[in-house]
Each structure stands twice: as C-alpha cells, then as structure tokens.
Design a protein around this nucleic acid. Sequence first.
DNA 1: TGCCCCTAGC
Length: 792
Amino acid sequence: MKSAKLIQSTSTYKSVYKTTLNQSIVDTFLLQCQSLNEFNQILSQMIVTGFIKDTYAASRILTFSTAKSSFINLHYSRQIFDHIENPNGFIYNTMMRSYLQINHPKETLLLYKLMLKNMKTVYPDTYTYPLLIQASIGSVLEGKEVHDHVVKMGFDSDVYVRNTLINMYAVCGEMMDARKVFDESPVRDLVSWNSVLAGYVQMGSVEEAKMVYDQMPEKNVIASNSMIALFGRCGRMNEAYRLFVDMKEKDLVSWTAMISCYEQGGMYEDALVMFIEMNRRGISVDEVVVISVLSACARSLVLETGASIHGLVFKTGTSSYVNIHNALIHMYSTCADIADAEKLFNSSSHTDIISWNSMISGYSKCGSLKKAREVFDKMPVKDVVSWSALISGHSQAGMFDETIALFQEMMLRGQIKPDETILVSVISACTRLAALEQGTWVHAYIKKNGLEVNSVLGTTLIDMYMKLGCVESAEEVFYKMDEKGVSSWNSLILGLAMNGEVEKSLEMFSEMKRSGVVPNEITFVAVLGGCRHMGLVDEGHHHFDSMINTHKIEPNIKHYGCMVDLLGRAGLLKEAEELIASMPMAPDVATWGALLGACKKHGASEMGERVGLKLIELQPNHDGFHVLLSNIYASKGSWENVAEIRGTMIENRVVKTPGCSIIEANGIVHEFVAGDTGHPRIHEIEEMLDVITERVKMIGYSPDTNEVCFDIDDEEKETTLFRHSEKLAIAFGLMVMDPSTPIRIMKNLRICNDCHALAKLVSKAFDREIVVRDRHVFHHFRQGSCSCMEYW
DNA sequence: TGCCCCTAGC
C-alpha cells in the first residue's frame, strides 16, 4: 500500500529482474549505477519484490541515494525514507545528515521529533546528537535544548557529542558554555582542544587562546596555524613569527598564514620576502598564498614583483584559476599598469563580475573616469561593488557633482542598495558641495532602512553636519553611535570648536579622556584650534604641554601653527615670533602666515612688513600674503607701498582669488563671486542690498573701508565693499528663503571685518539666523552677535 | 554513519 506512489514513478522498470533480489545483486548494481534511470530500475525492483522491507537493504539504498546528489535530489531520497517500514537509528541518522549537508537544519530537527514519536521502535544514538547539535548552530536556545536532551538521554559522556557541543557553543560565541563542557569532559582528545582553541581564535581572545595552546598536550599543525593567524590579526608579529619558526612540521598553510599576517599588517616587504623564501625551499604554492602575495604587491604598488609572480603562476598553470586571474587584474590596475590589466581582462571570458569591478576601480585610480564609466556601462550585471568603485572613484577625483548624480542614478534604478563605502563617498561629496538637503536625505535614508552606522560612516556624518553648521544633528549622530573611534571624537571636538562652541569642545575632550579613548595628534590639532578660536592662551599652553609631557606626542608643524596663531591673535606677537624660532622643524608658510595675520590685526606694521616680505619671498605667487601686506600698508595710508605690492603682484603674475560664496536655497545651489553681476536676479538683489543698508545704518552700521586695499575714494570703496560675495548671498537668501530657515552660506576665503559687522546687524534687523562658513571657522549670527566672539 | 580542520579577496 505504502509503496504505490513510488512504484508509479519507477514502474517502467519492473521487468528487468526475473530472479529474486539479494544484497549482493543490489550492491553490484549500485556500484555501476550512474544515472537516475539506472537507480530507478533497482529501486522499483526492490519495491516490487518486497526486498525493500529488509532494513539493511533499505539503509544501503538510502545511503546511496543521499550520496548521489548529482542525479538524485534529496526530496526523492526523503520519499524513499518515508517508504521504509522499520527505519532504524542508522537510517534516521543518514537522512538527518543529508538535510544538514544541504543546509536544511530545521528538517534535521523535525526528523528527531519524529524519531522521539516512534521511540518504541527506534532510538537516538551517539551518532544522532552530533547531528542535532550541528543543526542547532545559529540558535543558542535550540542548542541548549538539545544539550538538555543529551544529558537526559545519557549521552553526555561521549567524546564526539561533547566535542560537537564545544564547537557549537564556540561558533555561537558562548565561550563560557564551551569552556564548561571542555573543562568537565572526562576525556579530551585533539579535537576537544582544537575546538575550544578555535572558539577563542574566532573571538580574537588572544590571551585565552594562548593559554589553551600552551596547555595542549600535543600541538598539531592546525592549532599552530590558527595561532599564527591570531597573533597576526592582533598585530603581534613577533610572536607569530616565533611560533612559525619553532614549528617542527610546517605545511603550506603555515607559510600562507605567516605571509598573510604580514600582508594584513601592512608589512608588504616581509610578506614578499617570505614568499620568495617559500619558493626557494621548493614548497608548492596554491591559490590562497598567490592571492595573498598579489594583494601585498598591489597594496605596496610593487609592479615588478607582481609581474614576476605573474610569470611564476603562469608556469605552474594556476594563472587560469578565476580568482588568481582576478587578483592579477587587480594588481596591475592598482599599480596603474592599466595596459597589462586590460590585456588580461580582454583575454578572459568576461563572465566574472570581479574582473569587471577591478577594471572600474583601476581606471578610476588612474583618473580615467570616462573609461571607468564605459566599462561600467558595458557590464552585463552590476553589483554593489561596481557602483561603489564608480562612485568613490568620482568622489576621489574631486568630481562631487558627478558623485551625487551617480548615486541618484543608482537609487533611481532601485536594484542595488548602497553599502557603507558608497554612503561615505556620497556624504563627503555633499559636505564638499555644501549640499545639506541632499546630505540630510542620505542620513534619513540610513535611518529609515535601519542601516548600521559604524565608526567610519558616523564620523563622516558628524563631519558633514559640523562643516555645514548643524551642530545639533552632528551631536545626535555622535550620541547614537555604538562604537566611537578616536576619529569620531576628533570630528566632534573639531566641529564644536569650529562652530564657536569651544567650551563644549574642551568639555568633550575631557569626556573623551575619561571614557578611555587615547587622543592622537589630530585630537590636539582640534583642541589647540579650539583654544585659538577663543583666544584661550593659558589653556592652549596647558594642552600643548600636556600633549608633549603626558601623552608623549611630538608636536608637528600644525600644532606649532596653532600656537603661533593663538599667541599672535592675543597680541603676544613677540612670544609668537620666539616660538617660531624655537621650532625643531623649518616653519612653513602657514606658520608665518598666522603671524602676519596677527600683525595685521594688532596693527604691528613694522613686524608685519618684515614677515610679509619674508612670506612673499617664500611663496611669490600666493595671493593672500600680498593682499594682507597690502592691507597693512593701506590701513596706515601708505598708498605708495600698496602700489608697489600691486606692482610685484603683476610681476609675479599673482592673481587675487576672487571671493566666492555659495548658498543652497530650496534645493538649488547658487554661486556668487565678488563683484558678480551675472546672476539672473541681480537687480532684485541690488535693490535688496539698498534696503539692507538703510535698515542697518539705522542701528549703527558704518562701512569699514579699511578692508579695501586700493587707493580709491571712500564712496567708491563703499560700492566695492557692497559687491563682496557673501553680501550678495545674504541679500539673495533674505529674498528667497523661508524666514524660519537659517541662511547658510559657504565662503572660500575668510569673511572680512565689514561683512562680519554687517551680518551681525542683519541678523538683528531682520530677525534671521545667518550661518557663514568661511575658510577657517563658522559664524553663527543671531540677534546681533556672532558665535566666533570676534576671533577668526 | 560521526566531532575539530588553519590560510586569500574587488
């Protein structure tokens, strides 16, 4: 009865055997069986003759069918299983193992339930529980349940069962439980030791792993290889190497582990030397080691070695492996040998997406974005890496508009979800373009889709919000981050200081130290920069000293630059000049430039002249220094000297960088250049400027004409001043933007005294918040005052 | 009939 359905599918074969079946005939037949047809012949015969009722025969046919997954699918095997009248433990185990092998652990567990239901005729044995334990990997709860059954049924003394339990807990990251099973084991074999060791290795718990390894009664190659890899991952190269040298029997994997340790630790030369030594000793190479060593070549940009490895793998015939082929293309394109990359790429069948992606990133790295796009367009199937290579390629080439356009194209097509690399590229492009709306959209997308904001992505978001003047949003990102790296803190500290919240910035610096994150040299650039904004001379000195003495960080030229600027702005010009003289390295243009700025601010025209002339000598084509020096002369009315500077500027072909401000209004970015008359709404803007002037003059504005360095009369000076790009942008913002939205402006140069004074008064007279980011710092203008407290 | 099995990547 039970066999009716199965016979149907096998009925065409019923007359093959006339003789009665026995095990020896079945065995002979199975030995030759190579297709489903042949299999069905014997199976139908077994059913018809009733030989299938023989438990041993049934187990043989089921074992055979589960082993031949190439022509018998598991569903069919299950049908056979269901037709076996008195399946024993062995038959259950075989079926359960098959489900496990095709990754259907749930079916394995269901079969166990069936087994328990039929407990009168069949019992789980020591072979059943390892299978069940493996089937419950992925759910600790299920694993514990199975563990309970093991104890209840009395199988917990079996070494196989215990070892599988150790492995299960270790894989699930439950090392306490793994360790408990291990410690309580009456018998421990090599597998027990290796399993518990593998758990610690996977967790990266190097001390625990080391302890287990040292206690092992006999050290096997696999355990030693794992330890080498673990030491490497933790950056403990010396220990990895010592272990490697001390190993009595090294195999190919030991060499590979050591080489990839070096490769991943950035010690590319050591990796290559080790590979050469391996070859010299005549140890054969495999795919894994070749890929590792090619990666070392790519990362260290040593094309020649890479090419000689190419020669070697060509000889051994491994170059035809797809993975090696791809690694070669990657190596050539990364080393900017795009011609050889192309040659290999064109010689392949183009079926592998990885080689296409390598070509895209190769062209991107060489700056051939057009070619990268061509390859991209020709690709039959694109994955997230293809988009990532193209998008980050454009971002790295400074093509920010294109970066965002590509991202929009990708989102529009809707097939690929962006990964973290893409998001980081797009967010930094938004930062550079001051495209806050677009950036905020990306952030909203991340939140909406519940994407993980890891340290890098979070830091990029903080950086964006801070550089676009949205302090609260930046802080929100920071507090929601799970893992805060030193760069996350740096972005926060730097951003707060940049936005005029220096006190908070310094508080965060203390908080950072309290939370155990070790500050690095960038942290101190941020901290000293904060002190500089507020003119906190004593505090600046204190942090500068603690950097050297407490944190053992050698000050670099940027730290000195900050200190010079801090002292100079505070009017301590002599002290600043002395600090420059005490620097262990040659002061750079920025350092002298800071001093020159300070001279201008404090009207120290004698020192200013000296420093200015020195700077012009150091960098004759820099526009800013000429302008600064010229301003120093202009402010004391030395028009002859001003004219002289203008002469040198013409002689040195210095072109004054025009001031340029951008403002994003209603999703569109508008650009204004000083003296601009090109904007389509320029007449309205000019009318608005008149309105502004009238209103602010009533509350005490008078143009600060000292800023204009040319010898022209005061009325004309005033007109020139009113063509400054930020004023045009402010007027435009007042015209078109909703009063509830702050007017955000990005300027390429520093904001001038006059524009600063005007912006303060506008914020009061028009009751509007204005945010101007200049080259150095943010100015949040609210109700007549500015967050920079007049330090900029 | 079984448990552990290390090394690589756009």
